[in-house]
């Protein structure tokens, strides 16, 4: 019996390792190609370990396009969108979860209904509206259109609902105002959900491609994702450089992911159970 279990375990590891390698091969290929000479990326026979490492690729690319500016723009968009999203979502979620007021249920149903409507359905009228407000081709416009997602309110509200009302009631008897209860009790308790929201918003805004593609025209406003596209169209044959730029674009999200992986997993698991 014991031997059979060991054999099973070994088979499991072999299968898992093989599958994981297949999943990660594109990233490995990206990394080694970014360290080759442009002309060697496709040279045959393929080298899985390059003969020499050309780290200078990572220096060269910054001079080819204003990548630093693209990084700054992306960071700015990500930071502001995430902060506004977090702040207004937590506030609204408390209203929906813990305060009884007229029209609450109706408004909440409205929020939930629009979660189901894909952005692609209303992106055209949204663009029209933004251009009327002179908010297209500006960071402000992009921040505003992404900072008020119903998803954030929904996520936080579901978490706040699980905080016992008795806790708030006790604080109310002790003379704390609603704002005090929110700031001192509910907000601190909601930290795990906030982490999930921050991480998802961060990744979404950082990786967003279609939003900036539609809304940003001027080069000096563009994001890193659009920057890589520009890189590909201008230096189409400089494969190593394209890969180096792609690696740079991945790094912030990868770091975030490795440090806060737990919250990703919990966030997805929660959304799955809800359905």
């Amino acid at each position: 019996m014991h031997i059979r279990n060991n054999a099973k375990r070994i088979i499991l590891y072999v299968v898992l390792i093989a599958l994981a390698l297949i999943m990660l091969v594109p990233f490995y290929w990206m990394l080694i190609s970014s360290l080759k000479l442009n002309k060697d990326v496709f040279s045959l026979p393929m080298k899985w370990i390059p003969d020499s490492f050309h780290f200078e690729n990572y220096k060269v690319i910054w001079g080819k396009l204003p990548l630093i500016m693209f990084f700054k723009n992306t960071s700015k968009l990500t930071l502001f969108t995430t902060v506004i999203q977090l702040f207004t979502s937590c506030f609204a979620a408390y209203g929906f979860a813990k305060v009884k007021f007229r029209g609450r249920n109706l408004l909440f149903i409205l929020y939930v209904t629009t979660i189901a409507v894909p952005w692609q359905v209303y992106m055209v009228p949204q663009f029209v509206l933004m251009s009327k407000l002179h908010l297209t081709n500006s960071h402000l416009g992009l921040i505003l259109m992404q900072a008020f997602s119903a998803f954030g309110v929904f996520l936080m509200r579901q978490f706040y609902i699980s905080i016992p009302d008795e806790l708030c009631e006790a604080a109310r008897i002790d003379g704390l105002s609603e704002y005090g209860i929110f700031g001192r009790i509910v907000l601190p308790l909601g930290k795990p959900a906030m982490a999930t929201l921050v991480i998802f918003t961060f990744v979404n805004v950082w990786n967003d491609f279609m939003g900036p593609l539609i809304f940003l025209n001027s080069t000096e406003l563009k994001t890193i994702q659009l920057g890589i596209r520009m890189f590909i169209s201008q230096f189409g044959a400089e494969y190593a450089w394209i890969m180096a730029a792609s690696v740079c674009a991945l790094v912030p999200v990868v770091l975030l992911f490795l440090f806060f992986q737990r919250f990703f997993v919990e966030g997805i698991a929660a959304s799955g159970i809800k359905g």
Partner: peptide, 12 residues
């Protein structure tokens, strides 16, 4: 490892 591709940017 299996979750990794999900967080990677589509452009890259």
């Amino acid at each position: 490892a299996f979750f990794f591709p999900y967080i990677a940017s589509i452009v890259a």
